[in-house]
Computed example of a mutant assay.
Amino acid sequence: MIDLVDKGNRIAFKVKVQPRASKSEIAGIIGDAVKLRITSPPVDGAANEAVIRFFADLFRKPAKDIAIISGLLSRNKIVEISGLSLSEAKKAFQIE
């Protein structure tokens, strides 16, 4: 189950990133983290930018509202989204 942390007007969650995938998509849940496949390589911040773009599109938020608050140089990241409620996040991740 995804561990969604409600910080008032912000939601944070763990992401395990698999770079250089054939397509960008959520590939399931690993422990308490979202497994995210992205097409970008982990070079010069391209993978981090792809993670931000992916979640901006998923939640229909501007990229400036998405931040990687931990794990910039790791496959294991914590992503924080401003202006998102817990119920909106649960709906997008299809959590009851």
Rank of each mutant, 00 (worst) to 15 (best):
M1D: 15
M1T: 14
M1P: 15
D3P: 14
D3S: 15
L4N: 06
V5K: 12
D6H: 06
D6C: 05
G8T: 02
N9V: 03
I11A: 04
A12K: 04
F13D: 00
K14F: 04
V17F: 00
Q18D: 10
P19M: 10
R20K: 13
A21V: 09
S24F: 00
I26Q: 05
A27T: 05
G28N: 04
I29L: 01
I30H: 14
G31K: 11
G31I: 01
D32N: 15
A33D: 00
V34A: 02
K35N: 03
K35S: 03
L36H: 06
R37Q: 09
R37C: 04
I38P: 00
T39E: 12
S40D: 05
S40R: 15
P41Y: 11
P41W: 09
P41C: 12
V43W: 13
V43C: 14
D44G: 13
G45S: 14
G45T: 13
A47Q: 05
N48P: 11
A50E: 01
R53L: 11
F54H: 05
F55P: 04
D57R: 15
D57I: 13
D65L: 10
I66T: 01
I66C: 02
A67T: 07
I69Y: 10
I69Q: 08
I69D: 09
I69V: 14
I69W: 09
L72F: 15
L72M: 14
S74A: 15
N76Y: 14
S82C: 04
S82V: 03
L84A: 03
S85C: 06
S85Q: 07
S85G: 10
S85I: 03
S87W: 08
E88G: 05
K90E: 13
K90V: 05
K91S: 13
Q94K: 14
Q94I: 08
I95L: 14
